[in-house]
Amino acid sequence: ENVVSAPMPGKVLRVLVRVGDRVRVGQGLLVLEAMKMENEIPSPRDGVVKRILVKEGEIDDTGQPLIELG
């Protein structure tokens, strides 16, 4: 899985990584606010952040691509 998608609709509060960062499975990639709760979205695998497809403050839909890993 190279693309991390939104598991729920919500607002992107914080992006915790930058392009080029090495990430490990379970590491937080970004924080979504949904139903007044903050949810940290973890990396599904080890890899390198290739692209960040959303910006802080954006509203996303379920299934929307958020981050691409390489």
Score class of each variant (00 low, 15 high):
residue 23 V to N: 00
residue 2 N to V: 14
residue 70 G to I: 14
residue 21 D to V: 08
residue 23 V to T: 02
residue 10 G to E: 02
residue 28 G to F: 08
residue 63 G to W: 06
residue 33 E to T: 05
residue 27 Q to H: 05
residue 10 G to R: 03
residue 15 V to Q: 02
residue 17 V to F: 00
residue 3 V to H: 09
residue 50 K to N: 09
residue 48 V to D: 03
residue 47 G to P: 01
residue 37 M to H: 10
residue 17 V to Q: 00
residue 53 L to I: 09
residue 15 V to H: 03
residue 68 E to C: 11
residue 21 D to H: 05
residue 4 V to W: 00
residue 62 T to G: 09
residue 51 R to Y: 05
residue 59 I to Q: 10
residue 25 V to Y: 11
residue 70 G to W: 15
residue 26 G to E: 02
residue 44 P to K: 05
residue 54 V to Q: 04
residue 48 V to Q: 07
residue 50 K to V: 14
residue 56 E to Y: 09
residue 48 V to L: 08
residue 30 L to I: 14
residue 58 E to P: 11
residue 15 V to E: 06
residue 32 L to P: 00
residue 13 L to F: 00
residue 69 L to Q: 01
residue 17 V to I: 07
residue 23 V to W: 02
residue 12 V to N: 01
residue 52 I to F: 00
residue 69 L to Y: 04
residue 8 M to N: 08
residue 17 V to M: 00
residue 54 V to F: 07
residue 50 K to M: 11
residue 24 R to K: 13
residue 45 R to A: 11
residue 44 P to I: 05
residue 47 G to T: 03
residue 7 P to A: 08
residue 67 I to M: 11
residue 16 L to Y: 03
residue 11 K to T: 09
residue 42 P to L: 14
residue 41 I to T: 02
residue 32 L to C: 06
residue 43 S to F: 02
residue 51 R to L: 07
residue 42 P to V: 14
residue 3 V to T: 11
residue 59 I to N: 09
residue 1 E to P: 13
residue 28 G to I: 15
residue 62 T to I: 14
residue 9 P to A: 13
residue 13 L to D: 05
residue 10 G to N: 03
residue 43 S to G: 02
residue 66 L to S: 03
residue 11 K to A: 04
residue 12 V to W: 00
residue 46 D to A: 11
residue 4 V to Q: 03
residue 43 S to Q: 00
residue 3 V to Q: 07
residue 62 T to H: 09
residue 3 V to F: 14
residue 45 R to G: 05
residue 20 G to D: 05
residue 48 V to R: 07
residue 44 P to T: 07
residue 6 A to Y: 07
residue 8 M to D: 00
residue 34 A to S: 14
residue 13 L to V: 12
residue 38 E to I: 11
residue 9 P to T: 09
residue 5 S to D: 06
residue 57 G to K: 04
residue 69 L to N: 01
residue 21 D to F: 06
residue 69 L to T: 01
residue 43 S to N: 01
residue 4 V to K: 03
residue 9 P to W: 09
residue 25 V to I: 12
residue 15 V to D: 06
residue 48 V to T: 10
residue 41 I to S: 02
residue 4 V to A: 04
residue 39 N to H: 15
residue 41 I to R: 01
residue 48 V to P: 01
residue 55 K to P: 08
residue 59 I to D: 09
residue 69 L to C: 04
residue 64 Q to W: 12
residue 12 V to T: 03
residue 7 P to D: 06
residue 60 D to K: 15
residue 47 G to S: 05
residue 51 R to K: 12
residue 33 E to L: 14
residue 27 Q to T: 08
residue 40 E to T: 15
residue 29 L to F: 00
residue 41 I to K: 00
residue 27 Q to E: 08
residue 7 P to Q: 07
residue 3 V to I: 14
residue 39 N to T: 14
residue 34 A to P: 01
residue 64 Q to S: 11
residue 59 I to A: 08
residue 69 L to M: 07
residue 41 I to C: 06
residue 6 A to F: 09
residue 40 E to S: 08
residue 16 L to G: 02
residue 70 G to L: 13
residue 49 V to F: 00
residue 63 G to E: 07
residue 1 E to T: 14
residue 14 R to E: 09
residue 69 L to R: 01
residue 6 A to P: 04
residue 44 P to A: 04
residue 25 V to L: 13
residue 38 E to Q: 11
residue 13 L to Q: 04
residue 12 V to P: 00
residue 26 G to M: 05
residue 1 E to D: 13
residue 67 I to W: 03
residue 10 G to M: 03
residue 51 R to F: 05
residue 65 P to I: 11
residue 29 L to D: 01
residue 24 R to C: 13
residue 43 S to K: 02
residue 2 N to S: 13
residue 29 L to Y: 00
residue 38 E to P: 09
residue 18 R to P: 04
residue 20 G to L: 05
residue 47 G to M: 03
residue 2 N to H: 14
residue 26 G to I: 04
residue 6 A to E: 02
residue 31 V to A: 01
residue 14 R to C: 10
residue 3 V to G: 05
residue 65 P to N: 06
residue 43 S to P: 03
residue 3 V to R: 06
residue 3 V to A: 07
residue 12 V to F: 00
residue 43 S to W: 03
residue 45 R to P: 02
residue 14 R to G: 07
residue 1 E to C: 15
residue 60 D to E: 15
residue 22 R to H: 14
residue 35 M to L: 12
residue 23 V to M: 01
residue 49 V to D: 02
residue 66 L to I: 07
residue 15 V to T: 03
residue 57 G to W: 06
residue 4 V to G: 03
residue 59 I to F: 14
residue 46 D to R: 06
residue 8 M to C: 12
residue 21 D to G: 04
residue 43 S to H: 00
residue 45 R to T: 10
residue 46 D to Y: 08
residue 4 V to F: 03
residue 54 V to R: 04
residue 2 N to M: 14
residue 49 V to T: 02
residue 57 G to N: 07
residue 68 E to H: 08
residue 27 Q to D: 10
residue 58 E to K: 09
residue 20 G to W: 01
residue 54 V to S: 05
residue 37 M to Q: 13
residue 36 K to G: 15
residue 24 R to Q: 11
residue 54 V to A: 10
residue 60 D to M: 15
residue 64 Q to C: 10
residue 13 L to H: 03
residue 3 V to S: 07
residue 33 E to Y: 14
residue 48 V to K: 05
residue 55 K to I: 12
residue 26 G to K: 04
residue 11 K to G: 03
residue 6 A to C: 11
residue 38 E to G: 05
residue 48 V to M: 09
residue 53 L to V: 05
residue 33 E to P: 00
residue 64 Q to K: 11
residue 35 M to H: 13
residue 8 M to Q: 09
residue 50 K to A: 10
residue 32 L to V: 10
residue 66 L to Y: 04
residue 7 P to E: 06
residue 26 G to W: 04
residue 17 V to S: 00
residue 20 G to N: 06
residue 41 I to H: 01
residue 13 L to W: 00
residue 5 S to T: 15
residue 65 P to Y: 06
residue 32 L to D: 01
residue 46 D to F: 08
residue 37 M to D: 07
residue 44 P to R: 03
residue 21 D to E: 13
residue 34 A to M: 12
residue 19 V to I: 10
residue 45 R to E: 05
residue 3 V to N: 06
residue 45 R to Y: 13
residue 16 L to N: 05
residue 15 V to R: 00
residue 55 K to L: 11
residue 42 P to C: 14
residue 62 T to A: 14
residue 40 E to H: 09
residue 22 R to L: 13
residue 26 G to R: 03
residue 20 G to R: 03
residue 33 E to H: 06
residue 19 V to Y: 03
residue 57 G to P: 04
residue 68 E to A: 07
residue 32 L to H: 06
residue 40 E to C: 14
residue 32 L to T: 04
residue 26 G to F: 05
residue 36 K to W: 12
residue 46 D to N: 12
residue 58 E to Y: 13
residue 21 D to N: 04
residue 9 P to V: 07
residue 70 G to N: 11
residue 18 R to I: 10
residue 2 N to C: 15
residue 30 L to R: 00
residue 13 L to C: 08
residue 45 R to Q: 10
residue 7 P to I: 07
residue 51 R to W: 03
residue 18 R to N: 12
residue 8 M to I: 09
residue 41 I to Y: 03
residue 11 K to V: 10
residue 50 K to E: 09
residue 38 E to K: 08
residue 12 V to C: 07
residue 59 I to S: 09
residue 66 L to A: 03
residue 55 K to C: 12
residue 35 M to Y: 12
residue 23 V to E: 02
residue 14 R to L: 07
residue 11 K to D: 03
residue 62 T to D: 08
residue 16 L to W: 00
residue 47 G to C: 05
residue 42 P to D: 05
residue 25 V to F: 11
residue 7 P to H: 08
residue 70 G to Y: 15
residue 37 M to E: 11
residue 49 V to Q: 00
residue 28 G to Q: 05
residue 1 E to V: 14
residue 39 N to S: 12
residue 66 L to M: 11
residue 47 G to V: 02
residue 35 M to D: 14
residue 56 E to A: 11
residue 61 D to Q: 14
residue 1 E to K: 12
residue 66 L to V: 05
residue 57 G to I: 05
residue 37 M to A: 11
residue 29 L to A: 01
residue 40 E to D: 06
residue 66 L to P: 02
residue 39 N to Y: 15
residue 53 L to K: 03
residue 66 L to R: 02
residue 22 R to I: 14
residue 50 K to R: 12
residue 24 R to D: 07
residue 15 V to C: 08
residue 57 G to D: 06
residue 59 I to W: 15
residue 26 G to L: 05
residue 42 P to I: 13
residue 69 L to E: 01
residue 66 L to W: 06
residue 13 L to E: 06
residue 31 V to W: 04
residue 35 M to P: 04
residue 40 E to G: 04
residue 10 G to P: 02
